[in-house]
Design a protein around this nucleic acid. Structure first.
Length: 266
DNA sequence: TCATTAACCCGCG
DNA sequence: CGCGGGTTAATGA
């Protein structure tokens, strides 16, 4: 059970990865964020301008690398520009529970703006391009624009709604349904940032990571994936999910997307 | 390194 | 017993 970083030992552990600065057009980084906020809450032109003017420091991270660790004080919030991240906790035995999966356009550690010491890890799952926004910058923005503050507040509440669904998933559903549910949620979120490709979408997690998300071993994750394939429901190959039978897929996952609150008018 | 599979094991209803 | 899991190990891509 070797992990590169664990819970609660971050101040004495190995030094953090020092990311490279990256030169990436920052418009593309903001675009996914704006699209998300537009879908979940609606957003005014003025607020879009505010977000477009935020100073963002962009850095590259390899896969399976800590971004902010349990116990650390964050000074920035992290906007995912490209790649997949996860929030997780690791228990003393070394086992890691993945708590949430994050995609481009999301700010997984927005709550660090108010909860100063991290109570979990944020790390990359795949190689990532991440944008960092200073806390002080976001605080000023909150004061200047209450409507942006509301947007971020709503975003955080949706985040907690997703955690409730995650608990139900891991705690009560059989493993095949757990996997299907995580897949469909991911698909609905990728849809918002226009990252679907016909009947397939990205899910670039290793089977180890899938196991950690579902609370099963990697071997069992493999069995579950195989079962879904054999039953003609979905195919998962090289980080891409292809839906074979949409009806069976939805039925198995028991998916009701209300908790994602993607329609601001309802 | 990751994915796959087999063989074997265990607890629970 | 059968089901849903875990462990271990071998092998392949």
């Amino acid at each position: 059970m070797q992990r590169r970083f664990g819970a609660r030992d971050c101040n004495t552990g190995p030094t953090s990865y020092q990311p490279e600065l990256a030169r990436v057009p920052s418009d593309t980084i903001r675009a996914a964020l704006v699209r998300r906020l537009r879908t979940s809450s609606g957003i005014s032109d003025d607020d879009v301008k505010e977000i477009e003017q935020l100073p963002i420091a962009v850095r590259q991270y390899p896969a399976e690398t800590p971004v902010v660790r349990d116990g650390e004080r964050a000074t920035d919030c992290c906007l995912i520009a490209d790649g997949f991240c996860a929030r997780s906790k690791t228990i003393p035995s070394g086992k890691r529970q993945i708590l949430s999966i994050h995609i481009p356009g999301e700010i997984p550690d927005l709550m660090s703006l108010f909860l100063h010491v991290m109570d979990h890890d944020l790390s990359t799952l795949t190689p990532c391009t991440l944008g960092f926004i200073r806390h002080e910058t976001l605080r000023k923005l909150h004061q200047r624009s209450p409507s942006v503050a509301e947007l971020f507040w709503r975003d955080t509440l949706i985040d907690s709604a997703m955690f409730r669904e995650w608990i139900v998933n891991v705690g009560q559903r059989p493993a095949p349904a757990r996997l299907a549910h995580v897949m469909i949620e991911l698909r609905e979120r990728l849809r918002v940032i226009e990252r679907l490709d016909g009947n397939s979408f990205e899910m670039p997690l290793t089977q180890e990571q899938i196991g950690e998300a579902l609370g099963i071993t990697a071997v069992h994750a493999n069995r579950v994936i195989k079962q879904l394939r054999q039953e003609g429901i979905v195919e998962l190959h090289r980080g891409r999910v292809t839906v074979l039978d949409e009806r069976k897929f939805l039925e198995l996952a028991d998916f009701d997307g209300r908790y994602l609150h993607q329609s601001p008018t309802l």
